[in-house]
């Protein structure tokens, strides 16, 4: 392959544009709304309409000087580079970026998953020469189970312990709405109670056509009323004084990390639900095999194992070691990208 027109810090050389830059830049393409990908302070932002709406909701209308919304599948010419966004299946509006320049095709996946999810546009496979893939769950121990089976474990616990509140720790953007949607899909139609931090983003999802059923605010609700109910809260709230208002709560957590029981124990999670918005090991391998790329750049996660695997498949592979910048220890900015060991509640 020719020298790629994308640099290892995800700068698209011919148009001086960065993908998901951690520092403010003149021009940025944003794959999705999680804080480790979407930052405020860029001059010009290009993203899907849903992502633009999410950024404005989270960071304010003026979090970038200008926004350009680009629909999925619509090619956009910028000085000889063609940019097309394809669904990544990670959260509402999440996109992979296809870049075409002088016959070379590069795909930057952002975060993605291939499992069914009613709250996100389904992943589309894009052929390319160079694939820049995430590797959040890039170890063969990560084999995500069926999310509906995991959700029914929550509902079973609820029927076995009907006097206890069930608090499900979920990141406010994406996971919370997917969890609610899964609960509905499994036939539970009682009101679901929300921690205050969830409300705006649930509203936004509903406005963008994702039905979530009846939602109520948990804050201000009498303790007795919350017994035997499902409450969706950010992971940081599980250990916080906030959860003391609940009736003898069962602490559940929806995250791909929850497959490791020792991790669940560390975070005092009693009911781990292995529900992830990232590819597991098998989906990562499947994507690498199917996209046709000869060169794989690996970022965001357990790069070493996936690079080793790709090289074993005869591919050219290298880790990018992009320094994801750190948020506070409690919440890695709304995504499960953080390693539980780094002191986050993931």
């Amino acid at each position: 392959m020719a020298v790629p027109f994308l640099e290892r810090n995800l700068r698209i050389t011919p148009i001086d544009t960065f993908i998901d830059p951690p520092q403010p830049r003149a021009r940025a393409i944003i794959t999705h709304g999680h804080a480790d990908h979407a930052r405020s302070g860029h001059d010009a932002v290009l993203a899907t309409p849903d992502t633009v709406a999410i950024m404005k909701t989270r960071y304010g209308e003026n979090c970038a000087r200008s926004f350009q919304a680009l629909e999925f599948g619509q090619p956009l010419q910028i000085d000889g580079v063609t940019v097309t966004l394809y669904p990544a299946g990670h959260i509402l509006g999440s996109a992979q970026v296809l870049l075409e320049y002088k016959g070379q095709r590069i795909v930057v996946t952002g975060d993605y998953k291939r499992l069914h999810d009613r709250t996100a546009q389904p992943f589309e496979l894009v052929q390319c020469d160079l694939l820049v893939t995430e590797a959040t769950f890039g170890l063969p121990v990560f084999q995500h189970p069926d999310p509906k089976a995991e959700t029914s474990r929550l509902l079973r616990s609820l029927s076995q312990e009907p006097e206890r509140s069930h608090v499900v720790g979920c990141y406010a953007l994406g996971k919370a709405q997917r969890m609610i949607s899964l609960i509905r899909e499994c036939g539970y139609h009682d009101p679901i109670y929300l921690h205050g931090a969830m409300v705006r983003l649930c509203d936004l999802y509903e406005q963008h056509g994702v039905p979530l059923g009846e939602l109520r605010q948990a804050t201000g609700t009498a303790k007795g009323e919350l017994a035997g109910k499902i409450i969706i809260a950010p992971p940081s709230a599980l250990k916080d004084r906030w959860s003391r208002r609940l009736a003898d709560p069962v602490l559940a957590m929806a995250s791909g990390w929850m497959s490791v029981k020792q991790r669940a124990r560390q975070s005092l999670v009693e009911l781990p639900l292995v529900i992830s918005d990232h590819c597991d090991w098998n989906e990562l391998r499947q994507t690498i095999a199917e996209c046709g790329a000869e060169t794989i750049w690996v970022t965001h996660g357990r790069e070493d194992a996936l690079v080793y695997y790709c090289q074993g498949q005869g591919l050219i592979a290298e880790p990018l070691n992009i320094q994801a910048y750190e948020d506070g220890p409690e919440d890695a900015g709304g995504d499960e990208t953080g390693d539980a060991a780094e002191g986050r509640a993931a």
């Binding site: 170890l139 063969p140 121990v141 490791v260 020792q262 357990r302 070493d304 194992a305 080793y308 695997y309």
Partner: peptide, 10 residues
């Protein structure tokens, strides 16, 4: 090798 990396992680 993948097993060793996984064991180290888990």
């Amino acid at each position: 090798n993948l097993f060793a990396m996984s064991y180290d992680y888990v």
